[in-house]
Design a protein around this nucleic acid. Structure first.
Length: 763
DNA sequence: AACGTCCATGTTTTT
DNA sequence: CATGGACGTT
């Protein structure tokens, strides 16, 4: 690598002298110190100097972080605003803020507590001019980022087939993750793309952003770093400002974030990073596990505290997870031990189970879910954690046919939906008429008869007169350049925007938004759309207007939305959650289902192809994260056959299945696969994956689910074609087909559905 | 300017 | 298969 991202010009200053008088003593029975184990206590009370807390899964990391903040504040070592606490997600930030507030009350409001991006934004607003931005710059989301890059590429005549904008965007982001501004990127970087012009396009992209008075997410960090490094007095100001730094999920930091932290920590050197190298699963977006491994080199004399008492999972679960992750090299090495007392007889081993195909897998998992539920547990205490989004489909289908409520986490987020982004563009344009991206997005949505020619003219006029697009459009309308139809449409649009803008001060902003959506015809457009998802979109627009009421004014709203792009978590109903393993990090469930443990799926073929052993180890960490989400029970499943892109493939069990330690795992396989007899089993026997699984230790045939009550059911159904049956939800119907315990039934009212035989009764 | 058709493509994702 | 983007047609 031509540029060492870690090479800073200045070295660390010696530790700052302690404030005269010293900190106030804190009573040992202070509420936040209660119930901490010795390691946690050490992590909480070692507040001066650099500290690295290696905290394994379920070892009380958040507790330590919040207690530590409380401790710093209570001992009067620093004022709240002198403490910086950084997280990666808004969710984590919110949770931490809440928990600190529970301990110390209102002062928690004054902490600098937030995501890297939101804190950078706060700092950067004050120094925007130093990076060529106005203090009112906008933060673009990924959608807008891509559009800007596409424009740049188009202008540069780059073939978007040979060099997909997405790919280039990814490269630029990785550069930004490494704190590389265009001038620092090595000339050979990304050379294969865009005819070797990747770096040049990066520069152009940055210029274009500046022209738009905008920056992207990566810039929030990058620009802040630039500001820090460009002006020593600014850096000193912030270094002096923050007396104590706390970092959550340190293993996820990228180089830019690392540099940012290192700069800010330089003066007082009170930095505490909490992380777990075994849970580093984001290297593909620039996270550097190296940051955690090199901590004590950068902060000589750093205290390292290991949290190894796990208060979440049973010993079997812990041991299974530990045994798996032990296959990774280069770990910092923690040994998780159970911090809970368990009744040795009551706890179950981690179960693995081979099934015939994805459908059988979904059927099995949902049966187990219902069994656990009948055992008295809440659906919300169970999760299906998948490797990739496509895996959710089969489970959803199964859950729907069986009528088990579920929730898929991580679909398209509210503010990323098309209709919301369009509506936001309207609001943005009304709020700031110079917002060219917003203008472009919606000039012709709904259709106003503008084509490429008309859009071109607007752009040309804007460049000629050096005015924003909206203003250019206004001028264009006044002339006779445009054909009548586009001209009329554009005139109306320009006029509308002007009118809405004049209402900004007089009309409540939520009401204004509603007016805009109505008068623009945007809402109407969706109402007239006969697509099945159109009504939902209209709903979403209403929700957007409702969300607006939560904010004081339009600018505040727009400001927040850029950074807080979250799903509005609906009322917590009792539902099974389906989500990706990545999404599950930091969460816990009583029961965890881990489907699709097959080679190529998990570990994902692409991870291996792209980064080899490194990729494999990250996949293994992902598996580790998955298992350690569980408190009580884990069921790992893998199918012999899977349809991928509509092609049936026979699958090998994941190597991770074999890597699980036998002593803590109960291995099972579906009947048909091992007993022969069923027509498919011959193929199964000959399949290399099966012979491998078959020779695995302790494999035995699955009877009923071991965690009871078992729906021990005959493999052959009791139902015959033509039987009249009754279903609780769908009513009466006629059996059309029987497939094992699965029936296809033509319901009199509900149509034809596939259901489990256990859900219907012969009339 | 709007609609249709063909082809490539197919992880993980916060801000 | 199913979606999205590019391109060509009306």
């Amino acid at each position: 690598m031509p540029t060492d991202p870690f090479a800073l010009d200045d070295d660390f200053a010696p530790p700052a002298p302690r404030t005269a008088g010293g900190p106030l003593p804190v009573a040992p029975d202070a509420p936040w110190l209660k119930g901490l184990n010795p390691e946690q206590l050490e992590a909480v009370t070692t507040v001066d100097g650099p500290v690295l807390v290696l905290s394994g899964a379920g070892t009380g990391k958040t507790k330590v972080l919040t207690a530590r903040l409380a401790h710093i504040l209570a001992s009067r070592r620093a004022q709240p605003w002198q403490c910086l606490a950084v997280t990666f997600t808004n969710r984590a930030a919110r949770e931490m803020k809440q928990r600190v507030a529970d301990l110390v009350g209102p002062p928690a409001q004054d902490l600098w507590l937030g995501t890297f991006h939101s804190l950078c934004l706060r700092i950067l607003r004050r120094h925007a001019a130093m990076v060529g931005l106005g203090s009112d710059f906008t933060v673009l989301d990924s959608d807008d980022q891509l559009r800007v890059l596409k424009q740049v590429m188009e202008a540069e005549r780059i073939d978007s087939k040979a060099s997909p904008p997405q790919a280039l965007m990814g490269i630029i982001q990785r550069w930004k993750d490494r704190a590389l501004t265009p001038d620092k990127v090595g000339a050979e970087g990304g050379s294969e793309l865009a005819g070797g012009r990747a770096r040049e396009l990066y520069r152009l992209y940055q210029e274009r952003l500046r022209g738009l008075n905008a920056c992207d997410f990566g810039d929030l960090l990058l620009h802040t770093l630039t500001v820090f490094l460009a002006d020593a007095s600014v850096l000193e100001h912030w270094q002096g400002h923050f007396h104590y730094l706390l970092v959550d999920e340190y293993q996820d930091t990228n180089v830019a974030q690392y540099l940012w932290l290192r700069l800010l920590a330089q003066k007082h050197r009170n930095i505490c990073c909490v992380g777990d190298d075994d849970q580093s699963i984001y290297s593909w977006r620039g996270a550097e596990v190296g940051n955690i491994l090199r901590f004590d080199k950068d902060f000589p004399g750093a205290r390292v505290v290991r949290l190894e008492s796990n208060y979440r999972s049973t010993p079997h679960i812990l041991a299974a997870a530990s045994g798996l992750i032990a296959h990774n090299g280069g770990r910092l090495g923690k040994t998780l031990r159970s911090g809970l007392s368990h009744d040795a007889d009551a706890i179950e081993k981690v179960r693995t189970r081979a099934v015939w195909d994805g459908e059988a897998e979904a059927r099995l998992v949902v049966e187990e879910i219902e069994a656990v539920q009948r055992g008295g547990e809440k659906l919300a205490s169970m999760a299906i954690l998948v490797r990739a989004g496509f895996q959710t489909r089969e489970f959803e289908e199964r859950l729907i046919t069986t009528g088990v409520p579920y929730r898929v986490v991580g679909g398209p987020r509210f503010y990323e939906r098309l209709e919301i982004r369009d509506a936001m563009a309207y609001l943005r344009l009304v709020n700031s008429p110079a917002d060219g991206l917003a203008f472009e997005r919606i000039v012709n949505t709904p259709k106003r008869g503008l084509g490429e020619a008309a859009i071109q003219s607007i752009h040309i006029r804007a460049r000629q007169d050096n005015v924003p697009l909206l203003e250019a459009a206004r001028r264009l309308v006044a002339g006779d350049e445009l054909k009548p139809k586009p001209r009329q449409g554009l005139a109306k649009f320009v006029e509308d925007v002007g009118r809405w803008r004049s209402l900004l001060d007089s009309m409540p902003h939520a009401e204004l938004a509603a007016t805009i959506l109505e008068e623009s015809g945007y809402q109407e457009m969706w109402r007239n759309d006969k697509a099945p998802d159109a009504p939902g979109r209209v709903e979403n627009l209403k929700e957007l207007v409702a969300a607006l009421e939560e904010y004081d004014d339009l600018p505040t709203f727009l400001e927040h939305v850029a950074l807080v792009m979250e799903n509005d978590e609906k009322a917590e109903l009792d539902r099974v959650v389906i989500m990706t393993l990545h999404g599950a990090k930091g969460l816990e469930f009583d029961t965890v289902f881990l489907p699709g443990w097959e080679e190529e799926v998990f570990p994902h073929a692409r991870a291996l192809a792209e980064t080899g052993t490194q990729g494999l180890e990250e996949e293994r960490r992902l598996a580790y994260v998955g298992i350690t989400r569980a408190k009580k029970r884990v069921l790992i499943t893998f199918a012999a056959n899977r349809r991928i892109y509509n092609q049936w493939k026979s699958q090998l069990p994941s190597r991770f299945v074999e890597e699980l330690p036998d002593a803590h795992v109960e291995r099972m396989a579906d009947q048909g696969l091992y007993s022969g007899g069923l027509q498919e089993s011959r193929a199964a026997w000959n399949d290399p994956g099966w012979s491998r699984a078959r020779h695995g230790a302790q494999t035995r045939q699955a009877a009923a689910p071991s965690w009871k009550p078992a729906p021990a059911r005959d493999p052959e159904s009791d139902f015959k074609l033509g039987d009249r049956v009754f279903h609780d939800k769908f009513g009466n119907g006629t059996v059309l087909a029987v497939d094992g315990n699965k029936l296809e039934i033509a319901f009199d009212k509900a149509g034809t559905k596939k259901v489990l035989d256990s859900y219907v009764a012969v009339v």
